[in-house]
């Protein structure tokens, strides 16, 4: 791939399936009294129809901020300073709150992080779900109940949950309520922010299975944010790796686990604790620079074992290496 192709060209490459969501050179900054933090810096990727994309990286790398920017829910002092987000071809950045409301839940929905704490504790489950539903589709009580119970059935919740309060449910069940809410209006994209963290492994597996079944049945596309690489291996079709606000590699899950290209992806894969073999622990430092003062050149240069002069001068752009596989590293592109 020649280096003179413009950044963001990743989006122009044709794919086998339709692109449902396109994120184009997205930039989000948090303004602080001592300079702005580039939380998401020039991130471009696409999500295909019925695809499950994993978004991974260490805490503070910008995964959740990217998701919030896609949903147009970046909280102050953060704001989107550049780039575009298109869902089914429709631009989301910069449109009015009223317009956005039409897209939320119906085109784009969220399974929030720590879903157990995202339900209102003093309102019955049925009313919380009816709220979202009635805002989009006026209907009578009977239709409403039938609609919600059908979604309960999809995620394996018993009918009695309809009249319950959140505190009467276990963590796994609350998580299912959130999944049921996210599919209430049959959106084309669901963003799940660490949907199974804080659950016990057995419950986590049951919830993960529920998400997979629902995704298959409804044919919805998903972005799954997480840091558990094992769970990613089980659930997603492609993995996107972020480091310090940059997307460093995105590719099919099998390639990413078998032959990761970016040194940071390699580090992540090597650091996975295994129960199959005892291996010497791979020790590494964390984030090494202040996000307010990003270095010139490659963002990973301080931790990279292969760093050379070009890396300190020129920021590598995300380049095509194989179908659906892109990487931002001078070593790979040269």
């Amino acid at each position: 791939m020649s280096a003179d192709l413009a950044v963001g060209s990743a989006l122009d490459i044709p794919t086998d399936r339709r692109k449902v969501l396109e994120v184009d050179r997205l930039r989000v900054q948090y303004e602080t009294p001592r300079g702005s933090v580039k939380a998401v810096d020039d991130v471009s990727f696409y999500l295909k129809e019925q695809e499950n994309l994993g978004l991974v990286g260490e805490s503070g790398c910008g995964k959740t901020t990217t998701a919030m920017a896609i949903l147009q829910m970046v909280q102050s002092p953060g704001r989107i300073v550049g780039g575009q987000v298109r869902i089914n071809g429709k631009e989301l950045v910069g449109i009015s709150e009223g317009e956005l409301r039409k897209y939320r839940w119906s085109e784009l929905s969220l399974i929030p992080q720590g879903a157990m704490n995202s339900l209102n504790p003093v309102i019955r489950i049925k009313e919380q779900m009816a709220d979202a539903l009635l805002a989009h589709r006026p209907m009578n009580r009977k239709e409403l109940k039938a609609w919600i119970l059908k979604r309960f059935n999809d995620v394996g919740l018993p009918e009695r949950v309809y009249n319950m309060y959140p505190h009467e449910l276990s963590g796994g069940m609350k998580q299912r309520v959130c999944i049921a809410m996210s599919i209430l209006l049959n959106p084309s994209v669901i963003i799940a922010d660490e949907p199974t963290s804080a659950l016990d492994v057995v419950v986590q597996r049951v919830v993960a299975q529920t998400i997979m079944e629902v995704k298959e049945r409804l044919g919805v596309s998903m972005i799954m944010i997480g840091h558990d690489m094992g769970l990613q291996a089980q659930m997603v079709d492609r993995v996107a790796v972020m480091y310090a606000g940059h997307l460093v590699e995105i590719g099919p899950v099998k390639n990413m686990f078998k032959s990761p290209l970016h040194p940071y992806t390699q580090l992540l894969i090597e650091a996975i604790p295994s129960i199959a073999e005892k291996k010497p622990l791979k020790v590494s430092e964390g984030l090494t620079h202040d996000l307010r003062h990003t270095p010139k050149g490659c963002i990973f240069q301080f931790r990279c074992p292969y760093v050379h002069d070009t890396c300190k001068e020129i920021t590598p752009s995300l380049e095509y290496v194989a179908p659906d596989h892109f990487v931002a590293c001078h070593r790979v592109s040269s």
Partner: peptide, 11 residues
Amino acid sequence: SIPVPDPEIKW
């Protein structure tokens, strides 16, 4: 139930 970090080995 521990997710295996290998896309080839599914639950």
